[in-house]
Structures are given as C-alpha cells and as structure tokens.
Write a protein that binds this DNA or RNA. Structure first.
Lengths: 184, 184
DNA sequence: TGCCGCATGTAACCGGTTACATGATTCG
DNA sequence: CGAATCATGTAACCGGTTACATGCGGCA
C-alpha cells in the first residue's frame, strides 16, 4: 500500500456508505463528492479488483431483469479496519492546488488592465454558478436524504465549498475594483 | 501545443519577468508562486529545451567565476506573443482540487466525533501556519520588491491566498464547534 | 572531510484521464 | 430507429514527481 492512494480509500468509504457497484460509485462521486474529489472508470474498476485481491472486499455477480448484469462489492471486516485506520491517520502534506487564474494574474503585467479585468469577470461567473450548484445539492440532500446518517458530514463539506467559493467571489470583486480604480 | 500545458506558460512568464536559468525559475516558483503553483526540475529543464526548439526562447552558455557554468534563456518575440495569447485565452475548465480533509470528513460516520475533531484541529494548525507564511511573503515583497512592476499582481495572488485560508480557518472553527455541541 | 549552494540533467515510475469496445433494455 | 441509461472494462497516453548522477567552490 502506497502513502498517496487516497482514491482507494474513497472507494472503500463509498462501499461502507452503501454503494456496491463501480457504476454506482462513479455516480455518487459525480453527484456528491464532485466539489472535492473525482475519479474515472479507468481507476474504479481496476481498484475494485485490487481491493478483492487484498481481501478488503468481496464480489458477487448479480443477474438483473431488464438491466445488464452487475458485480456487487462488499467491504470485508479487514476492509472496514483499513478504512478506519486511514481515517485516523494524520493528514499528508497538502498538495498545492494549481490555479490557472492566479497564474495568469501573476503575469498580468504583460497584458492590459482591461484584459485582466475580463478574465476576472469570467472567473467570477464560473464561481457564481458553482455556488448555485452547491446550494442546489444541499437542498436536494435536505429533501431526499435527511435521514441518512452520513448527511451531517455531507453538509459540512458543502458548507466548506460554499464558504470558500464565496470568499473567492469577494476576492474577485475586490481585485476587479482595484484594477478599475487604477484606470482613471 | 497542447491545451493543458500551463506549466510551459508558467516558465514563459518567468522568462518575461526576468528569470533566465532553470535554477532561478525553480527558486522563484518555490518562493513566490508556491501557494498556487509548483514545478520540479524534471519538468523545467526539458521544457526549456522544447521552448528553444519551438523558437519561443534562445539559449546562451554563460561561464561564471567561482560558480558552475549556466545557461541563460531569453524570450524571443515569438515567445512573447505566445505568452500574451495564453494570457488572453479563456479559462480552461477548472480542475477539481482534491481535498483529503474533506474526503475523510465525508466518511467520518465511520469514526468517533473526537477523532474527527482532532483531524480538524490539526488541519486548522496547518492553515494557520500557511496564513502566517503568506503574510511573511507579503511583507518581504513590500520591503524588497515594491518597485517591481509585477509586485501589484503578486499582492493580488497573496491576497487570494490569505482570504481563502482565512475562510478555511473559519470553517474549521465552525465545524469543530458544531461537533462539540453534539457530544453533550 | 563533509556539507551547502549553485547548476544541469535524465530514467523510472505513478496517478490519473481519454478514448475506445461491448452489450443489454427502455422510451420516444 | 436512435438515444439514453445501465453496466464493465482496458490500452495508450500524459503530466508530473522522485531518485539519481555529476561537478564546482566556499566554508566550518
């Protein structure tokens, strides 16, 4: 087991939460972990295979009527332990999140203020859309999954997304304002 | 040229800012772009080579006294144009920044509240250190590079770092508080 | 003598995405 | 009939890191 293999634990966690097929796991990540994690089939299926090989999960073939067959994966007790050990383990060094907007801004002496302002405006739009999406997910969990014992933690992560996005929007606004004032 | 090759433009931008060797570029990134970009020698040297091959930069061998020889790279006008074209170009889809803390929090039903609180406390410490570092860099630019025409933009990126980090700290505090209240 | 700073470079590896292949069923 | 949803899987590729190699000069 490598230090960095968070993706493996994301899958372990989703198995524990009650998602048992590769397809389901992918859906859940796209819908609910989308703001801080993503994953492709190219990793899910091979990882599930490895999980079984390592004894952290089991597979069952399930035939379905009206739908293609599927494979259901279930955590073993060893898998549950592995998940809990990872949860307890101290945080890795947090990787730098590369930010294209900041990179461009850093070099913006090489373009006009108007161009820089336009970039920031379009970034602000993206952020506002994102904020609306988080609010939407929040509402949908409130109305559909409020009984879900995990829901509490899902809200914490959404709150994070909303707070950070909102701080980014404020920064955009402030920076645009500063640049406009200079143009006079 | 690929769509995603921001790293190439980071180097182009630093050549324009006045850093002319691979070693210098690495230093600058480690000191000043560290909060939103990083890069290893394993990419810098090969990329500089490619830049020359594409006619975006030129090389000169420079012998030095008391120091090893070095290679100085300079932007060509074609390189300057490429940089400006990239600056103007619309933002790519912003990649999801994977967040180990949120991933663990998302699955925290599988551990005790106390353990979750501890994780958040240690994350908060990391964030507070980070905030102090940003403030430090800001002060050092104020006292050493305030005449630098790029400085204005450097401050914008640092302001971003401080605002987002501060929002993260607030979120930590709030989430910890919520979890503590539940324990009663 | 050994370490640090300066300076350049590469091969192996790794995590992850993309593009593709396959195929069933349902619905308009 | 075609599109969408369900469902599984892989090979090629790509951006990036890590570990290593090399070597000079100054300093403790």
């Amino acid at each position: 087991m490598k230090r960095n293999n968070h993706t493996k634990y994301a899958i372990l966690g989703l198995l524990a939460t009650g998602f048992h097929t590769g397809y389901n796991i992918k859906q859940m990540i796209d819908n609910s972990l989308n703001h801080f994690w993503k994953i492709s089939y190219g990793q899910i299926y091979p990882t599930l295979k490895v999980l079984v090989e390592e004894g952290l999960a089991t597979v069952e073939d399930k035939a379905q009527e009206g739908k293609p067959d599927k494979k259901e994966y279930y955590l073993t007790s060893k898998g549950g332990e592995a998940l809990r050990r990872w949860l307890e383990s101290p945080l890795d060094d947090i990787p730098v999140s590369k930010n294209e907007v900041l990179l461009k801004l850093f070099f913006s002496r090489n373009q006009t203020n108007t161009q820089t302002i336009n970039q920031l405006e379009s970034y602000k739009e993206i952020l506002e859309e994102r904020y609306a999406i988080y609010s939407g997910i929040e509402e949908s969990i409130k109305s559909h999954d409020s009984m879900e014992p995990d829901a509490k933690f899902w809200f914490f992560t959404l709150d994070y997304g909303k707070r950070i996005t909102s701080a980014e929007i404020d920064w955009c606004q402030h920076t645009i304002h500063t640049l406009i004032q200079e143009e006079d």
